[in-house]
Design a protein around this nucleic acid. Structure first.
Lengths: 236, 236
DNA sequence: GCAAAAGTGTTGGGCATACACCCATGA
DNA sequence: TCATGGGTGTATGCCCAACACTTTTGC
């Protein structure tokens, strides 16, 4: 029985929220099969170097493939099914793109939740990286659909212990509606508007601003912001 | 920059409860250094084979190193610091025991919670495996102290969503005291006796038996058992 | 009878749920 | 004036936390 002399990769599940939907950051993959060129999508991820920690590798790979820097990622699961690199399309792509004959790749999956804003998006196109709404995601490379599914399960548990993580998804100023939609998406159930306002009122670290929406064709909503200092104080 | 052609291992954190304390199953490691032979302890863990899934590898390795079969393990975290195999003692051991010159090993850590009973213990000695109380664990091989610490953090979250896991640690018949001590150890805080009894009473899947302790020099405690069928029914 | 652990009830506060109407704004 | 979403209060039930004494048993 051969000891595995395996390759190790990291894959990054970057989740963003556009005010209406959860999105995942995917990059384009160009495949050649029997002379035909096709495109599909994958998570940003690649093999790690010999001399870097897993966390370092994740940060490097994300930057190389999407241009994003300083994204706080958390490792959430390793995927090492022996079948995960068996799809001929994937094998083919690995051989061409990585110049690599590979038996199996164990991948360590990382997760981050970020604000989708102009600064972040400014260079994504250069990398053929784009935000894809969760519900519109088709079949991805390798087992990346599975990885995303598990990332979402992980998020649900994660935010219970780190409510602050939710606010990473929102712009600095956000409305009660945005926050509520976010909760509803993550917990997959609808919330009562009035109870939700009370809930916000009880979260001292969500502070109401005087500022309101402008130019909307209905009563303007109040803005809120997340106060990290208050949050941290309450945690201790 | 060299792509890592890494080795992958699995390590198993098997947690047991003896009625008073949490224990971890460790195996003995014999080291030779400058002609001196020393013993220390490590988690049961080893390299994976080329053709097995991670979960399969964990089950195989645990059986090979401790004789334990059919232990339900859950993957909880990957450890891949580039320094984790840099201790000379560990390097030395790897070269001798694994016949392997290794740059770095990424390990996928698995967790299980089990009953410590005679059946389980019957062959542990043959494997130089033994239960070590958490509080008495000294410096272990590699980063195994860290792995155990993270396992315990993981358990705390895990039992919130899978209360059933706790009962894996207890004998089939257990007293309220045992269950309470277990809660206290895992949550690291003391619980009020009366409130705890109410809590048990509300858990329909914890059923009181007529049977009581025998031969104790104080009022005999009632036994309880965990009813999996009721538990599963309530979860759906 | 005493040491040691088992077992038992009540109260108050906080938190989640359910539920319906008026307000502000732009078109 | 209408369509659209913003924003508000009350009542109820549940769960949790706090708190002290009596019971059983072996020695």
């Amino acid at each position: 029985m051969a000891l595995a002399n395996n390759h190790i990769s990291v894959d990054c599940v970057i989740i963003g929220f556009d005010g209406e939907q959860l999105n995942v950051l995917l990059i384009e993959r160009v495949c050649e099969e029997k002379g035909e060129w096709t495109h599909d999508m994958k998570l940003p991820g690649s093999l790690i170097y010999q001399d870097e920690d897993l966390d370092e590798a994740a940060a490097r790979v994300l930057q190389e493939l999407t241009g994003l820097k300083n994204v706080n990622m958390v490792q959430f699961k390793a995927f090492g099914s022996k079948d995960r690199t068996k799809n001929p399309k994937d094998v083919h792509w690995l051989e061409r793109a990585m110049e690599l004959k590979v038996d199996r790749i164990v991948t360590i999956a990382y997760l981050s939740m970020v604000k989708i804003d102009r600064k972040l998006n400014s260079h994504l196109a250069d990398y053929k990286a784009s935000w894809v709404p969760l519900k519109q995601i088709r079949t991805l490379a390798f087992d990346h659909n599975l990885i995303i599914k598990e990332a979402l399960m992980y998020i649900r548990q994660y935010v219970e212990f780190n409510p602050a993580a939710l606010f990473e998804l929102l712009p600095r100023k956000f409305t009660a509606l945005q926050l509520r939609v976010l909760f509803e998406l993550i917990y997959e159930k609808e919330l009562d508007v009035r109870n939700f306002h009370k809930k916000i009122a009880m979260m001292e670290y969500v502070v109401a601003l005087e500022e309101r929406q402008q130019g909307v064709s209905h009563r303007a909503a109040r803005y809120y912001r997340f106060d990290k200092k208050i949050y941290n104080k309450l945690r201790h």
